[in-house]
């Protein structure tokens, strides 16, 4: 379904993986699953997937599951979160309480959980969250809502554009190590690079 939107429908970056170094191949390969969730409950996974469906405009279940798995891993990572606004809880707490809050806001307004409301309604919720326009109850200040949107979006979009299927969609050459590129000039491509199918 999504492939038909691609300008490079015949291109599969994974077909090139024998040319990649072993470390990169292993890292990218894990994104195809299977996944073991260590933190998120099935319900939380579904909430993340519902949010990711809107943020990334992605509908393939496999890709959405990888995104949820990435969030799961990041929330347990011992590395820091680089930066945080004072007064905003640490990333794990922010995201977990945040998806819960999205769910209850949806229930208040539509008597259904976030996953079950219509796509346009989900989209509207996220648009409001981005500018801090959802109800400010339970300490959800404008700033905290905006931070939730930013952190969620960062995690979801990072994972999305790290999935090899998405690389294929957009015509990205991928890791390309050790072989690199020989023809970098405008208009030139190496023989193995994605080529546009005329008329697509």
């Amino acid at each position: 379904m999504m492939r038909s939107e691609s300008l490079y429908p015949d291109y599969d970056v994974l077909a090139l993986q024998d040319e990649w170094d072993a470390h990169t191949r292993q890292i990218v390969g894990k994104r195809l699953g299977p996944f073991q969730f260590k933190l998120l409950t099935p319900e939380q996974q579904d909430l993340i997937k519902a949010v990711a469906r809107q943020l990334a405009y992605e509908h393939r279940e496999e890709v959405l599951t990888w995104i949820a798995a990435h969030v799961d891993e990041q929330l347990l990572s011992p590395l820091g979160e680089a930066q945080r606004r004072p007064g905003v809880p640490p990333q794990k707490e922010l995201i977990l309480s945040g998806i819960e809050a999205l769910n209850s806001w949806a229930k208040e307004k539509f008597f259904k959980g976030f996953q079950s409301i219509r796509q346009e309604q989900q989209l509207e919720f996220l648009q409001l969250l981005e500018v801090g326009g959802l109800p400010q109850d339970h300490g959800w200040t404008v700033e905290k809502q905006k931070e939730l949107f930013k952190k969620l979006t960062g995690l979801v979009i990072s994972a999305h554009y790290s999935h090899p299927w998405v690389w294929s969609d957009i015509g990205y050459g991928g890791p390309a190590y050790p072989r690199g590129y020989v023809r970098v000039e405008l208009g030139l491509t190496d023989p193995w690079e994605p080529k546009q199918v005329p008329g697509s």
Partner: peptide
């Protein structure tokens, strides 16, 4: 330690 990968 390095990989040709942005996320990593």
């Amino acid at each position: 330690d390095f990989a040709s990968d942005e996320l990593h």
